[in-house]
Amino acid sequence: MIVFVRFNSSHGFPVEVDSDTSIFQLKEVVAKRQGVPADQLRVIFAGKELRNDWTVQNCDLDQQSIVHIVQRPWRKGQEMNATGGDDPRNAAGGCEREPQSLTRVDLSSSVLPGDSVGLAVILHTDSRKDSPPAGSPAGRSIYNSFYVYCKGPCQRVQPGKLRVQCSTCRQATLTLTQGPSCWDDVLIPNRMSGECQSPHCPGTSAEFFFKCGAHPTSDKETSVALHLIATNSRNITCITCTDVRSPVLVFQCNSRHVICLDCFHLYCVTRLNDRQFVHDPQLGYSLPCVAGCPNSLIKELHHFRILGEEQYNRYQQYGAEECVLQMGGVLCPRPGCGAGLLPEPDQRKVTCEGGNGLGCGFAFCRECKEAYHEGECSAVFEASGTTTQAYRVDERAAEQARWEAASKETIKKTTKPCPRCHVPVEKNGGCMHMKCPQPQCRLEWCWNCGCEWNRVCMGDHWFDV
């Protein structure tokens, strides 16, 4: 396979590697080409510095992935760790964990309700045991953590790749202090920090972006993250068709209702045909949960890209028209025109101005929308079919299609509260000796007794199943 190397943020060049090629071997190839010592090179990928003893497969490097290699003399205490030698983080029983690669970060837990604080980093599902597709590297999971809308060759929703760059020099040479644990960490600028490894760059702020994971991409090709779309790892039924499908869209209502993408497309087109989208002054033209839940309008309007190009163009047109109407304007009634106009409040005669090729020149009556006339309008008909009709959803289907309910059931079956801080902690095999993952707590306690870890627990039921 081919990976592209950008040395000291210059133009990239291809390097041929195998899945079992080590990072140090990659350094040696680059060092020979650039005429520099291999031990002064640092390989940066997806916000993480890659260790010498890791392989291309370990690092989730795919065909035509772009890695950054910078030349920086080692500072005291760094060289041993980078070589894969006596790194205290690798000691058996050590409590410190390697910062998780962005290629394996899962933010789907952050669609849980606000009262489930902490689960994004504490609760991990076991539903990723799908067998890898044919042709994928051994052991590589097909679980997708992110979804994007690819405006490039795909023109559809695709699995996405999370990447990070330095907000100062805009190069992907920043190593994160810690990985993101929720969508806010990724979507809110300057929320996460790190250290830029580019020479002479003092940058410390992280800037995240997404790429389409279905095809090789260049540095400049980015895609918009659709953070309401998630892999259906909890096997929730769709609120409309009641099938279990994946991926799904999880509405931001209190129940976190789930809808499959085909039904979401149908829901949007139906509402669009009836012009029953909601115009929100802050958000724009949007839709609420299909069950009509309060405070559930979709905030990231790129989710409506699921409509496809033709329907999305209609959505944008109707949204612009609705904006004009909300501002007190009118639409030209001549067939084939429909231009938005903003006449004076007491102006009865409205002319669709033909300047700049935008208007048709038609003069019409503001009251009856017919060709302009003197005197009273002959008839004014009330528009028919403008009443909002509820999208029919079966109550039982709505009850079963809740992301929140599956989460709470998982928590109930696989977790116990920490005796000190009461945060839910998952036990997935292993011994009875637990350690609270909350940095402010870190209590060592017994899963069996529910009390602080002691010699009695150690001698009596340390390794009970």
Rank of each mutant, 00 (worst) to 15 (best):
I2P: 12
S9H: 05
V15F: 02
V15D: 00
V17M: 04
D20W: 04
F24E: 10
K27E: 00
V29W: 12
R33H: 05
Q34D: 04
L41E: 01
K48S: 04
V56Y: 02
N58L: 06
N58S: 13
C59W: 02
D62H: 15
S65Q: 05
P73D: 11
P73E: 10
K76C: 14
M80W: 11
D87T: 11
D87Q: 12
P88W: 08
P88M: 10
G94S: 12
G94I: 12
P99S: 14
D106M: 06
S110T: 11
G114W: 06
A120S: 14
V121D: 15
I122L: 14
I122P: 15
K129F: 09
K129R: 10
K129S: 13
S141D: 09
F146E: 00
K151Y: 12
G152D: 14
R156Y: 07
V157S: 03
R163F: 15
T168K: 09
L174Y: 08
T175P: 05
T175W: 07
T175G: 07
Q178G: 10
C182F: 04
D185R: 01
D185I: 01
E195N: 11
Q197M: 12
P199I: 08
S205M: 13
C212H: 00
G213K: 07
G213Y: 06
A214T: 07
H215G: 02
K220I: 09
T222C: 08
A225D: 02
L226Y: 02
L228W: 04
N235F: 06
C238R: 00
T240V: 15
L249F: 13
F251Y: 04
N254F: 09
S255W: 07
I259D: 01
H265C: 06
C268R: 00
R271K: 15
N273V: 03
D274L: 06
H279W: 10
H279Q: 09
Q282F: 09
S286T: 14
L287H: 02
C293A: 00
P294D: 13
N295F: 06
L307Y: 01
Y312R: 02
N313L: 13
R314L: 03
E321S: 10
E322Y: 04
L325G: 04
L325Y: 04
G329K: 03
C337W: 02
G340S: 09
L342Y: 09
D346T: 11
Q347R: 10
R348S: 06
V350P: 03
V350D: 03
G359E: 09
A363V: 13
C365L: 02
R366T: 06
K369V: 04
A371P: 13
H373E: 02
G375L: 06
C377L: 02
Q389L: 15
Y391F: 11
V393H: 06
D394F: 04
D394E: 10
R396S: 14
E404W: 06
E404A: 09
A405R: 13
E409D: 14
K416H: 05
P419S: 04
R420M: 14
C421Q: 00
H422P: 01
P424D: 12
G429N: 15
L443Q: 08
W445K: 00
G450K: 02
V456P: 15
M458R: 15
G459E: 15
G459I: 15
H461W: 00
H461K: 00
V465S: 06
